[in-house]
Amino acid sequence: MKNLIQDTLNKIKKEHIAPEPRWKFLARKFGAWAALGLIVLLGAVSISVVYYLLSQLDWDMPEFMHQNIFIYGLSVFPYFWSILLGIFIVAAFLSVRKTETGYRFGGLKIISLTIAGIFIIGFIMSAIGFDARFNRVMMRDVPYYAQHTITKETQWMQPEKGFLAGTIRSVSGDELAINDLNGLDWDVQLDNETLVRPSADISQGQMIKIIGTKNGAHNFRANEIRPWVGQGTMGSGQYRDRMNSNGK
């Protein structure tokens, strides 16, 4: 074997080869961890918005639409965010493997820890209301997002299918004047069969949801009235029979 050691040392000196600076390696190392952190954070945003979109829907609606709950679930499922979530989980897995010691962890361990991290941060985001705010910004500022996202608003703005939501402009006897979520005015008729949920406040300025039948271009007959938030079963714990019996 030729004098490899001396040759190599000579080459190092002659060509002024030097060890690369430490900061470069540290930047690469921390860059990989920062990328992982960002991916987990984006995954957490996705899961929190998925949860928000699903939790704000009224899951008893298929009953009124004579639809199977499973089919309904498929029709309202937030595919966009779920696919993004899947992509972020895969990206997080690859990102862990790219870190200096990432190869030491088994695939199952990485996936489990990543999912746990995403869920925990996503839960915190939901708890502080970030999910709703983020979705609102997306609905307002991102083209095509609003048209392709099933929200509580789109779910309740289907008068043809018997669902209407809006703000009460006035109450007069058995008739309500409603300004719907798209800004259109409706006359809503109530009768003795109309069920008003316990915590639904039928007074001017209140937002309500109505299940019923569309009678004309701006006419709607109400079978059931709920408050905008929730199903309205809270409060007395009982259904109130008739709007009139409450003196409204």
């Binding site: 490899l4 040759d7 190599t8 080459k11 190092i12 080869i17 030097a18 060890p19 690369e20 600076p21 430490r22 470069k24 390696f25």
Partner: peptide, 15 residues
């Protein structure tokens, strides 16, 4: 090849 490897090791010593 070994010389190239040694030079690479030398360059990466800080890593």
């Amino acid at each position: 090849l070994l010389q190239e490897i040694f030079i690479k090791i030398y360059q990466k010593l800080n890593e």
